[in-house]
Design a protein around this nucleic acid. Sequence first.
DNA 1: TTCTACGATCAAAATCCTGTTCATGTAAAA
DNA 2: TTTTACATGAACAGGATTTTGATCGTAGAA
Lengths: 221, 221
Amino acid sequence: MNRILIVEDDEDIGAVLEKELIKDGYEVMRAVTGTSGRMMLGKNPDLILMDLMLPGMTGEELLSHISPDIPVIAVSARSSTDDKVDLLGRGCVDYITKPFDIKELKARVAAALRTSESKRGSKVLSYKGLCVDTGKHDVTLDGKPLKLTRTEYAILKMLIGSGGRVISKSELLDLIKDETPDCTDSSVKVHISNLRKKIKEITDTEYIEAVWGIGFRLGGE
Amino acid sequence: MNRILIVEDDEDIGAVLEKELIKDGYEVMRAVTGTSGRMMLGKNPDLILMDLMLPGMTGEELLSHISPDIPVIAVSARSSTDDKVDLLGRGCVDYITKPFDIKELKARVAAALRTSESKRGSKVLSYKGLCVDTGKHDVTLDGKPLKLTRTEYAILKMLIGSGGRVISKSELLDLIKDETPDCTDSSVKVHISNLRKKIKEITDTEYIEAVWGIGFRLGGE
DNA sequence: TTCTACGATCAAAATCCTGTTCATGTAAAA
DNA sequence: TTTTACATGAACAGGATTTTGATCGTAGAA
């Protein structure tokens, strides 16, 4: 779940934003001054929605304290192009002028989160010669590329991402359910089987291990 | 993704810098001498982190070869104010003395990149013979000009600007939505198709690669 | 040992995606 | 006005992927 920090001194607007964003499934934190906003940076928000006119500290000042990989959307009554250019230069990814349409705001929040997620979620997970690059969305085994389908990739990523923990079949089912809500666990079995087949074409090491009655785990002996 | 060139002869320090910067999502290149640093200028770094005491060529000498719009941060044991003024005059945007705090260094790197990016909004992105000049708004393939429409250009720029990352279809849709808010992903498909067609007129290399169920990526084999 | 429930695999069927082409609408250029 | 270039949506073909159902193998319990 994504965490959004709202820095807004107007109680009404803040409350509306909070309610709407919670409705969309975000976790929301609120601050009413620049100073309190700065303190809440410690809680690692994934996105910041910020008014530029704040008591205590200007939005611009607050901006300079924010790590550049957190997307910031500025909300302001001001709308001169100069302001806009200036802010975008300082690390804001977007800019909305009041009064705003809540639907548009939500769309921009979603877009900003999407790009930042793919940018910083670009991690390389690895386990014994098996490398999953979550940004490039590709996998290599002992240096050789492994061509996986979407589901196979998702399963492998889940397995490799959970550090040796056993993943229950129902967890894997949830992964697949996103696309097809009604499916039995027999598809999971097939995907696992196909994954193993592709792995076997490259190495003899057994990577995917079944744990009876529980699920699967990565652990090539 | 931003590319950072580290010119540092101390192996330990260089390795730490590289690791930390990669962790932050930068693409890192290393050089251990001034001379090799100079060669790597050809790889178009977005920022240079440079030790001033180098074998082969002094940092000051190297500085004079660097294009003035690339931000350079000097890292040095020396700390006299004269040195500092001198260097800043020669085009360094910042100056850090050893021993430095890695967090501070990262913050300065981020800040320097942010300002330089907004200053010269134009940047030449390139990938295997494909060059996108965001300033001049034109594209060349193996030296030959590629005449693209506005949308095709936007798509290609997004793909090339994201360093091999997969761009989801919804991200591409957002790009098009700016002009026509209601459009289906079938237009994305058509644009991609047209782009490929134009590329194919010049070379046989496959540049735009589909990642099934996810989106598209640049990656000519 | 024998039984049962679960795991593995296969091939066919169903579904989903991509790459094209074509007809249409629209806005700018001549 | 006419012409041209672009963007879009519909429709379809050709694949790729996913699911299903049947079948066989195997671990664990009685």
